[in-house]
Design a protein around this nucleic acid. Structure first.
Lengths: 231, 231, 231, 231
DNA sequence: AATGAATGAGGGTTCATTCAT
DNA sequence: CATGAATGAACCCTCATTCAT
């Protein structure tokens, strides 16, 4: 139900005066926004249309259907996301720990833009209804990211900065996942209401724990054998 | 049209039997199963009914509506889940690290039964479409769990087992979240296909990293001081 | 959805201890009550069952279905209603106007009991969904009643109490219908709220108007003729 | 299976045409029609859709839900109905009795169009299931109408055309209600079958009775007094 | 290129009715 | 007799998708 009073509209034409070239972009932007806000399922095409300042029909002119929007959304983002993280490290020297700090912070803790944050939300919410799509996204955005981190940790081991026996693969996965999930719960859900937490503290402490967990066990020089304390 | 060649079935009509005590349970069991498989939204009441061996109407005899199923599912689970974890620690002495090991493993890494694993999946998928419900579940199942872990860590600090400057709150949150998310992605999505990983290794290494990240830093140079090395 | 917590009930038997003979009556009584309150359509069998202190199944033991309840309700009432009115006049002498007064008041203005009032409400609300049933009721309760009134008016004409040229049939129908409808709107709907009106005044004035409308016209000019004054 | 022998139809697909200006009207028209025929409850949206030559979805494009149809139906009608009656009297002079005659006939006895007649039926049938809606309609259409009639009667009293002691308020209510109800029973129900009655006679006689009931009582004996005859 | 009217399949929910106990 | 668990047919409503304009 849309119009209650059937007004005879006088001013007829001149409706879509804007450049048609940006349309797809605008629609996609509106889509993430609304998806993140309401969730994929709860979002009606009309919501997106309204947010994009067009009508339902227009969306179908540019996209095959609702799922296609999501697909396009992820494709674009995936490529960028990883490229971005890699770029951060290319010109990089200094201690490995510093690099890891950067990767964690830039890659997993701080969505550079609102759109990316929103897209992440959409993804997490998606895994039951669109497992395939979701798996693709995780693969593209995360698995490669983990590989990067692992490489850094391994390098740290060779330099003696990190302990040899740390499980680099698990570390890469667990810390990033933990950070991600906390971020998500806090930003989207009201988790911050029932379990308030400073955002920076979360990130900083996580990085601190991460690095600490990789730190070498002191080889006691201590005369009488290894007294290596351990877990 | 073959119709008439139907075998005359011996077992007479008895179209259904009364099983008022089991039905609710059965329906709930069917519900998690189907929810986890198809996702909450994609699941039609009829699917659940079929899976439970009843008809749609029967579901409504025992539950107010679709959401109520979910609610009940979580209520039951929430209470048990936390109680279970606490119970694990009640009769416990020994080093704090041992207790943490137990909590992490039993509470976050190993769903005791299939139903609980499925329920977790449902939850994660739910956070966009039913934020309220989801928040409740997180609160009940997790926030309390985190408090427990924090308490253990703090105790470890007083005994000198853990370093004073570790952020107990963040540690509790990040490690458990990371473990949870990895578990979920692997069991439900096909993440294990594109990024194979041994399940036990994931849990064991996480625990190892967890404890290591809490280990006291060696106070170097401390002439006659504590000689406990670490990190 | 009925029971949320499946309690294992210990006390089993001794459930229906009351005399089974009154059941039908009790159910019918409950039915009018609820029908009048909620309307026929909006009333669920369960509402009636609850009001009657039995369960749905029991209703079906005594009545074929929902409609049958209504049918029985009307049958009983119809017979009584007319018999009652006729009885009022049997032992009656005096001026016709006095008798009409009685009929109008007792037969159309004052439901003798609450049940009858309720039944009337049900009827009026019924005419669209159960035209047949409704027609039957109107026929039984009203057409005969009108005939009675007509007879009285005719008698009044022969005695000179009423004017010859009054349309007895229309008078019988219009006054009773008007009274009925007003009564109904006021008792059931909130008409009395937006259009307050004293109940007795309504009845008394109606009767007054009724009788006045039948009063003979003065034959003017009749020099030594009848001097009967007219109201 | 004949399938292939289908005539190649010339008139191409054109499955539907856009008629945004007429649709709402058509749907409403179809709605009264079907409501009056089957009753509000028994009417399925699909019936209305079919009657209007559209599909269910289209109804929801223009109206919020089933109730909204009814609401709109009444709103339009209410406003018109009263305006129409008032208009009839605006340019009016002559004896009050003549004016009353008009109001009764045009306002309560003769639905100007079929739709209005149907709408009335719907209303009467509605009072149990939608008391709120019904009360609104009665208020709008009737209470104001009664006020109008009362005013006329009072004027008649001052001119001596009517007797002083007649209860104008009750008269207005009872006669109109009686006429209305009779009309309804006869047109919708089969009352005319079991209790045949000429429609015009009903209206004419009612008006006659109405006016007669208001006529002044002759003050007999008054030598040079008013000789106005009654009735 | 864009609109928005129209479609139609599908799902949640209700409830009269049945029937095992 | 009575219960109340179970059924299943209906019906309202939503919304992705199509298509006349």
């Amino acid at each position: 139900m849309v119009k209650n009073t059937v007004v005879p509209r006088r001013t007829p034409p001149r409706r879509w005066t804007r450049r048609p070239d940006d349309r797809p972009r605008e629609i996609l932007a509106a889509a993430v926004r609304v998806f993140a806000e309401r969730g994929y399922n709860a979002t009606r095409l009309e919501d997106i249309a309204a947010a994009a300042g067009v009508t339902k029909g227009t969306i179908y002119y540019y996209f095959k259907n609702k799922d296609a929007l999501l697909l396009r959304l992820s494709e674009a983002s995936d490529r960028e996301e990883f490229a971005r993280i890699e770029a951060l490290l290319s010109d990089n020297v200094g201690p490995v720990s510093a690099q890891l700090r950067i990767v964690l912070r830039k890659g997993f803790a701080e969505p550079t833009d609102e759109a990316r944050r929103q897209l992440r939300m959409v993804y997490l919410a998606l895994h039951a209804d669109h497992p395939k799509l979701f798996a693709r996204a995780v693969q593209a955005a995360l698995v490669d990211g983990w590989a990067l981190i692992v490489k850094l940790i391994e390098r740290g081991k060779t330099t003696g900065e990190f302990r040899e026996d740390a499980d680099a693969h698990v570390a890469a996965r667990v810390f990033t996942s933990g950070l991600l999930l906390q971020q998500l719960w806090r930003s989207s859900l009201g988790l911050d209401r029932t379990d308030p937490f400073d955002r920076d503290r979360m990130v900083d402490s996580t990085i601190e724990l991460f690095l600490h967990s990789l730190r070498p066990t002191v080889r006691l020089r201590a005369a009488g054998g290894k007294r290596r304390a351990t877990t």
